[in-house]
Design a protein around this nucleic acid. Structure first.
Lengths: 254, 254
DNA sequence: CGCGAAGTTGAAACAGGTCAATGCTTGTGG
DNA sequence: CCACAAGCATTGACCTGTTTCAACTTCGCG
């Protein structure tokens, strides 16, 4: 899955955390000055990764942790027989590699879906974060719990919903998350996933994913094309997915 | 679902954390004296819950957090149409309600599978834990990440494996986890799940679960009966499940 | 002994998977 | 600027794992 990659570390031209454009998005909580100071110190640099490249590998452990600054990524795991399950998608503001930081070997891999920019943190500094800035430790737990909640929701979708409902669910979820980080305008947003990604995330075959997505389009619920997705009728999508409306939570960002 | 329940708080007769029998199990890391002191202070009491009763409810929030001391529980969520997805099972030593502690409303419910004893912690003390005992804050993040890893694994199973492999996977996983807390002897352990639980955890219908489990028994991989499950051929089970052997991690317990 | 919950089993229906082609883009090199 | 390759989307036909429906049995317990 991750291949052809090329990664370059940037020395200069790095965004200071105070000026981080993400931080001003609606979704994120405000940081106190000393928290911001610590994060700035914690941040070791930035990393650019090309679309399709792996960021972290299962079975390995990494000296770094990341926050996704720009672009899309996804966590996935491969079975011995080659099948792939995408565990969830990562959007700007998401923390990457908590498991890598806490365990000695990752259980899954993380790959860049699009070209991606990452904030890099030293794993070795993680402990000092808890010691010196407990509120950030609390935030990390929060992020871990939040990500678990996402996976929970995916499991519910894959375990209980029909193909049509799963795809509707995925779209509604993307919409909500992208809204939060200002990447959706009037229900319209960039959609860099290939149908194979959708299939692997929802436990469906590629062919059936195609047919079902097509059906969703014919139903008039969404429009897709040119790497964009537009939600035509959000209520209809929610109904198909069997989803209630959910209010987003204000979240931390490291 | 949780019903018929009855819960009683115990004033006396509570196990002191130092003497906690779980703490001596192989799976758990050793605590420093001051950590132990804090946890003891953190623990507000014990709670007994009857099998089948809900411990935490979705949409609600709780003033308490728990550690499962004795018995089995499970996290689940219900869809509008009544279908139930069990997200994962909780065994002694597992922390309950992190999401309840961090978010203002739970996304899922937790129910007691068997009669259960819980250590009770005050949610309001959670923050002081991070401030006064950062290492325990770190542990909480660890526990959150660990639980996420469990759900990840479940998602892989439900998304990618056949019915037979899913059930094999579930059994292997129980075996590994129960070993860690001394609840399995020679691959034989109490198995309080009903087939409906198995079905709801694995995204299968009850009928198919039955037939498939039966098949697994006929294959000679496991023996079930009398609320007990005995693994006859662990390697065969692993092969069916498409699982590699995994070494358990030493974990914290609050 | 009798009731309700849980486990079994068979038959029929269907959602989704697999196989196999075909078309559409896009990027690359000549 | 065109031809080709490679990846992705689309469609039809067919096949099968799983679900659904409908009994019937067994177990645990008052």
């Amino acid at each position: 899955m991750g291949d052809k990659g090329r990664a370059s570390r940037q020395a200069g031209g790095v965004v200071a955390c105070v000026d981080c454009p993400l931080r001003h998005q609606a979704a994120f909580r405000q940081f106190a000055p000393e928290e911001l100071a610590f994060v700035t110190h914690f941040k070791a640099g930035e990393l650019q990764i090309t679309a399709g490249t792996d960021i972290l590998l299962a079975e390995h452990n990494s000296a770094h942790l990341f926050t996704l600054l720009r672009g899309w990524a996804y966590r996935y795991s491969l079975l011995p027989d080659g099948r792939r399950q995408i565990l969830n998608f990562l959007l700007p503001g998401d923390f990457i590699g908590l498991q890598a930081g806490l365990f000695d070997a990752m259980q899954h891999s993380v790959a860049a879906l699009t070209d991606v920019t990452l904030c890099v943190f030293q794993r070795s500094e993680l402990w000092s974060l808890y010691r010196e800035q407990p509120s950030l430790g609390y935030d990390l737990t929060w992020l871990a719990a939040n990500e678990e909640a996402l996976v929970d929701a995916n499991l519910v979708a894959v375990g209980q919903r029909t193909a049509l409902a799963r795809i509707a669910y995925l779209i509604v979820q993307f919409h909500a998350r992208l809204e939060g980080v200002g990447m959706s305008q009037h229900g319209r947003f960039a959609f860099p996933l290939t149908q194979q990604h959708v299939a692997d995330a929802l436990g469906l075959s590629l062919v059936h994913t195609n047919k079902t997505l097509r059906r969703l389009v014919k139903l008039g619920a969404v429009k897709v094309g040119g790497g964009m997705l537009a939600i035509a009728r959000l209520d209809q999508l929610r109904a198909i997915a069997g989803l209630e409306e959910a209010k987003p939570r204000s979240r931390p960002i490291l």
